[in-house]
């Protein structure tokens, strides 16, 4: 569990991060979102003390991070940044092995871990181990950057706009993969983005920042239905918030008993997909695989604030 308590950072007397408090539960994915210059990066970098807080505390599992030597703290926290920051003079394997080597893992264990991570990120170990960073595509380099951050099995992973440099198609896939890997490993993750869609798609919790202040810290559905300030509402955009809301829930969650015509939909599909299917096929209800139905009325009810 990460507790951020009254954290502030001043530059030249001006608060760039202003009295921010928030808690991220173990295994959760929290997204810091806000316009450029709102202080997201500074807040993130105070967690691994690349930036020294002016006041306030960061506690990891109850331990004040200020009491630990900074470099030892950072070896326990994964860190991945936009543009990946891979070491250009080191091979993919050497890059991924950075923290395990700093921690003095035995050679064999490091090699095994490198291969395990490459496989996890769908990069063939035999082909990629020896490559140099400039021989990777943007998407591959980004994955190696995340693999490097995860190498020493950190309990906490910090990511600063990790998908910013990727084109939309690759970005969607990378986001999916990240979410899956995060769930699978149970890593607590704090991710910075300026993209609200990414925040809604990925976050268990979303922290909206503006001018160094934390405006709202809530589950995505609450941010969509109850924006705390006009700024938050503007950031979400009002045009497609109903659809975004639908994309947060699964068909299985609202399946009701009944019968319906036509091909069935998977229980794991989003309500947004279900709505699209209803409209496309002109049906008022869809059968759900494994039993039950989902109706247009139920979908309509889910697309509105309560």
């Amino acid at each position: 569990m990460i507790e951020i308590r009254n954290l502030s950072r001043l530059y030249d007397g001006l608060a760039v991060v202003d009295d921010v408090s928030l808690t991220v539960e173990t295994g959760q994915l929290a997204v810091l979102v806000g316009t450029s210059g709102s202080g997201k990066t500074t807040l993130l970098r105070m967690i691994n003390r690349l930036v020294q807080p002016s006041s306030g505390q960061v506690l990891i599992d109850g331990v004040d991070t200020a009491t630990l030597p900074a470099h030892l703290l950072r070896r326990r926290i994964g860190y991945a940044i936009q543009g990946h920051g891979l070491f250009p003079h080191r091979s993919v394997a050497q890059n991924i092995a950075t923290v395990p080597r700093l921690l003095g893992w035995p050679r064999r264990q490091i090699d095994a871990r490198v291969d395990e991570l490459l496989a996890l990120f769908q990069l063939d170990p035999a082909a990629f181990r020896g490559r140099m960073p400039h021989q990777l595509s943007g998407g591959q380099a980004q994955r190696v950057g995340v693999a490097r951050a995860l190498a020493a099995k950190p309990d906490l992973l910090l990511m600063d706009e990790p998908f910013g440099a990727l084109d939309p198609l690759i970005r969607a896939k990378a986001q999916d993969d990240l979410r899956q890997i995060q769930r699978q490993l149970g890593t607590t993750l704090i991710l910075v983005t300026h993209d609200m869609t990414e925040a809604v798609d990925l976050g268990d919790r979303i922290a909206v920042m503006d001018g160094g202040k934390l405006l709202q810290y809530d589950a995505p559905a609450r941010i969509l239905t109850d924006p705390a300030t006009p700024f938050v509402r503007d950031l979400i955009g009002t045009a497609d918030r109903a659809l975004r809301l639908l994309s947060l829930a699964r068909v299985g969650d609202i399946a009701a008993p009944g019968q319906a015509e036509g091909p069935a939909i998977a229980p794991g599909a989003s309500l947004r997909d279900a709505l699209a299917e209803c409209l496309w096929s002109g049906r008022d209800a869809l059968p759900v695989e494994g039993g039950g139905i989902v109706t247009l009325n139920a979908l309509r009810a889910k697309a509105r604030p309560r």
Partner: peptide, 15 residues
């Protein structure tokens, strides 16, 4: 040396 590279090195826990 790119700032991102230096940052990554520090952020990963190098002294």
């Amino acid at each position: 040396v790119p700032a991102a590279t230096r940052d990554a090195a520090l952020g990963l826990g190098m002294t």
